[in-house]
Nucleic acid binder design. Structure first.
Lengths: 249, 249
DNA sequence: TAGTGGTCTAGACCACTTC
DNA sequence: AAGTGGTCTAGACCACTAG
């Protein structure tokens, strides 16, 4: 591993510099809390323009390796390994990665007046109508999760059962209300299986379930959708990976 | 909301353009799957340099609102609301956000030969030594979670009990082995409480626990740490939020 | 006041896709 | 061949921090 930028490589200079700096940080040559050389100085040292240096530093900042502070400098920080980006609602992708056969069964569709809990979550009146549906997610014919979704009912736009069965929740909301949700809030906890979920998932009542609760909002914060996922504890695991820059030699 | 860039505003042009484009996407003026005008064209329209336009598009791409494809164009995509970035191992921050009094008790510290399971997870020999410790996390004196951590034992570097009690796992690894882990893999599932965890958390055996399993690796993929968190299902919830650009009028 | 990062410009060349 | 995004340059001015 060299300390200079090789302009004949396919790897672009900003990425080469990122690898060099990452190497120096990880080897302890640059220590936690210490400042990096300034952007102009790095540019001089490696014969790069300041914009290129900045692109490199942005890359390292995204990974949590450095922290830029206006007027002060750019400082080494520890990698943000405690952030975990989980992807949900992508059941099919997840399953096919594990080479299982995924499927989804529509359990129920309903248009009705909301219970007081649902009315509160969706911020609708008790007299309004709410569209709700449930799906059972399967892998190789084994039940994995139960999903329950609620959104405001919009008379003018019926939804096909087919859509409900296979499309992602935010897409269904878009199709049904022409409002694109742009804020989301997700809660994650463990719950014991109630009788209904236990029956669908074919597990004993009281079994541990991984529960994800998802709220979708419009840009101005109006709730448009509420969703619950119950993953069977011993059949499903969410995975998250944080990996370093590729190709550091 | 105007359709031109106001250079007297404090909001920088690249951000103003992002707001304008987000507005057009969300209002349906630009539809899902359609291409945006090219970068040079946007520059001409709004009287901005191409680099500024690109900075704006990067912002929208990070949010998942657009997707740039080399040689083809930049296309509208739906917001990535199904990504959930959870932050763990930051117990104290999380608790103080909720204005609870956080605390951590060191339950056990151990240096011993690994069981076959641990030897496998840490890729060490059965004859090697492994340092393990357990912590009980509390909020307002109520037990919230049990943590169990394992790392390779390094004779030369003793660790103070105080460190073990309060510091983040990756920091402890750095202090003990002088290796900064930079890859992590995190698994999340629901489990039933075994007898040990039930006793520490003061819940019945079989209660649902949110289980997080964390692997820490060096850059070249050598395992350096293995950690388990067991959160009490009905006392702790992980939260994740995705919010839109601020200040769109 | 000097140095830092934050933003911006007006060019340039390249890799890739489409026709 | 034309158009797209990906990268890079050599300047510039600003806002912020520190001595």
């Amino acid at each position: 591993m060299s300390d200079t930028i090789d302009r004949n490589k396919f790897v672009p200079p900003y990425y080469q510099l990122a690898q060099i700096l990452e190497q120096k940080i990880l080897s302890g040559e640059l220590r936690l809390g210490e400042p990096l050389p300034s952007e102009t100085e790095l540019g001089k040292t490696y014969k790069l323009s300041r914009m290129t240096v900045r692109k490199c530093l942005n890359l390292l900042a995204e990974k949590g390796l450095v922290d830029a502070q206006q007027g002060r400098g750019t400082f080494i920080s520890r990698p943000a390994l405690d952030r975990a980006g989980f992807i949900v609602d992508e059941f099919h992708k997840e399953m096919s990665r594990r080479s299982l056969v995924p499927d989804a069964k529509l359990i129920a569709v309903n248009v009705s007046k909301p219970t007081s809990e649902i009315a509160e979550k969706l911020a609708v009146k008790q007299e309004d109508r709410v569209l709700s549906f449930s799906r059972l997610l399967l892998a190789d014919n084994t039940p994995i999760a139960v999903e329950r979704k609620y959104l405001r009912f919009n008379k003018g736009r019926p939804i096909l059962e087919n859509e409900l069965q296979y499309r992602a929740f935010s897409e269904i909301i878009l199709a049904h209300t022409e409002v694109l949700p742009v804020q989301s809030r997700m809660l994650m906890r463990a719950e014991a299986a109630d009788e209904t979920n236990a029956r669908y998932l074919q597990v004993p009542v009281g079994s541990p379930l991984l529960c994800l609760e998802q709220f979708l909002y419009t840009k101005v914060g109006e709730p448009v959708g509420w969703g619950l996922f119950y993953y069977c504890g011993d059949r499903f695991t969410l995975v998250s990976e944080v990996v370093p820059l590729k190709g550091v030699e």
